[in-house]
Amino acid sequence: MHLLSKMLILLSIMTALPLAHAAEDRLTLTGSSTVAPLAAEFAKRYESQHPGVRIDVQMGGSSRGINDARMGLADIGMVSRALKPTEQDLTAFVIAMDGIGIILHKSNAVGELSDTQVIDIYTGKIRNWQQVGGVDLPITVVNKAEGRSTLELFLHHFDLKNSQIKAQVVIGDNQQGIKTVSGNRGAIGYVSIGTAEYEEARGTPIKLLPMASQAATVEAIAKGHYPLSRQLNLVVKGIPVGLAENFITFAQSAAVKDLVEAQFFVAP
């Protein structure tokens, strides 16, 4: 009897719960795992300034952000690249910039690679560091997994197809890329510059290579000199209204510049 009454109470609580949610002051964001921690920080600050508002940030990758915004599963999608021509039904709002840099193990003697050399390494034509002026050590090519916007940007910049790349290691997130390269003296990989700069300063044994003779620094991205950079976007279907509009305006305002920098990105 005791158990039964408990179950009844639980059941009534569970059926009453949906009523507690009014949709007016709720916002859901899904998408890129690169943007998610930043957007979550934005959301927290926005919530603290607007009591009663709830902004839920979920992860899942840029493609998911596009898809969910389109299908209406999320109010706002998070996408860590510019929209493609096929995605013009969506409107994008830049909230930050991020650069992609090539990283090697710190002990590697190679200080610069030309675009052709990078292409030859990634397509398997160059297999040893000796061929580009380093020591006799086989090259471990670290590539990103399919669906990552870092991969798309890298391929686009070097005019490559993913099927041409001969990678020994395929990874997902930035941190994983840094961990892989710092643990392998012969490795080459590409990751977000802000992340790599932070790890380098912290003593992780990696080094960033300049790209097209532009030093890979957060500063160079901010100035727009660095060739391999990407936008971090919030996307909505059509025109944003109400809470979504307010939140996007907030995310693009000077009020969140410190948050962008704290996450090692560049304010637009």
Binding site: M14, P18, H21, D56, Q58, M59
Partner: peptide, 18 residues
């Protein structure tokens, strides 16, 4: 859990919160 209970790190107020 990544795609079911989600990523929100706020204190949950009900069982239907992420």
């Amino acid at each position: 859990l990544l795609f079911t209970s989600g990523y929100v790190d706020r204190m949950p107020e009900s069982l239907l919160d992420s």
